[in-house]
């Protein structure tokens, strides 16, 4: 089971996670007991500079984003990363004075873990914002699908399909990119299957609407009010079948977030 739910996050955090895990095991097994840790001032300074830049850029993003959830979730991640960095700085200072300091060693482990946890939170916050962008597009499509209810002429239908097309293409592209990003095979399969169902049902919907519009356009007098209603209801049922399929597909996107 992969630890990180997207390939981007995995590629960024996996090397750090592995190194921290390796060092923690070495310390826990006492492999390094009694050995001096050298001066780490320079690499810690590099971390400090990187954290400082990251927080600055992140805060600028928080100020400009329209995503309220991102505005809420990002600052705690900054604090976590900054606190972790402070621990690393303290550890470096302590080691300069005492290369055998046990407390400094603990600070190094805590600080490294804190950086991993904080940056993970930060990347998750960003990823969730990306998912919300996809969901906004899908919701737009869902809303537009309900417009099918009022399409009764061929002219309306042409306009309807013309308007639906670009949104559908955009949604399909976003979902395809997303499924390629997911590390959990079962999530990927669910998302692909849901999207395929939508792709299969859409022509069925359009075909049903076409039939109905044609009949109305041809002014078939024998079409009773009752028959007209039945056709409309059938058409709407197809639309209604699409909704849960799409929604369940979108829920998959969040599975990796717990």
């Amino acid at each position: 089971m992969p630890v990180f739910h997207t390939k981007t996050i995995e590629s960024i955090l996996e090397p750090v996670a592995q190194q921290i895990s390796h060092l923690v095991i070495m310390h826990e097994e006492g492999e390094v007991d009694g050995k001096a840790i050298p001066d780490l001032t320079a690499p810690v300074a590099a971390v400090q500079a990187a954290v400082s830049n990251l927080v600055r850029v992140g805060k600028e993003t928080v100020q400009t984003t329209e995503d309220a959830i991102m505005r809420r979730d990002m600052p705690p991640a900054f604090i976590k990363v900054e606190n972790a960095c402070t621990k690393l700085v303290q550890a470096a200072l302590m080691l300069k004075a005492d290369p055998y300091s046990v407390q400094a060693r603990d600070y190094l482990i805590d600080g490294s873990r804190g950086i991993l946890s904080g940056t993970s939170d930060l990347l998750l916050t960003f990823d969730e914002a990306e998912v919300r962008k996809i969901i906004r597009v899908c919701k737009g499509i869902l809303e537009y699908l309900t417009v099918a209810e009022v399409v009764e002429s061929m002219e309306d239908l042409i306009t309807y399909t013309k308007n639906l097309g670009p949104g559908m293409t955009k949604m399909a592209k976003m979902i395809d990119e997303r499924q390629q990003e997911l590390t959990h095979q079962e999530h990927r399969v669910m998302l692909v299957n849901s999207m395929n169902t939508v792709k299969e049902l859409l022509p069925v919907l359009i075909s049903g609407m076409t039939k109905m519009a044609k009949m109305i356009d041809e002014r078939q007098q024998e079409l009773t009010h009752q028959e007209h209603r039945v056709m409309l209801v059938n058409s709407m049922n197809t639309v209604k079948e699409l909704l849960p399929v799409l929604i369940s597909g979108l829920c998959v996107l969040f599975c990796g977030h717990g």
Binding site: V16, H22, V47, A50, V51, L54, T65, L123
Partner: peptide, 28 residues
């Protein structure tokens, strides 16, 4: 262990820089 801690801190700095680039790219 010297290599271990220095390597880890270097990786952490590089990772943070990479995240910063990601934020800038997505933001743009």
């Amino acid at each position: 262990i010297r290599v271990g801690w220095e390597l880890l801190l270097t990786t952490i700095a590089r990772t943070i820089n990479e995240i910063e680039t990601q934020i800038l790219t997505r933001d743009a």
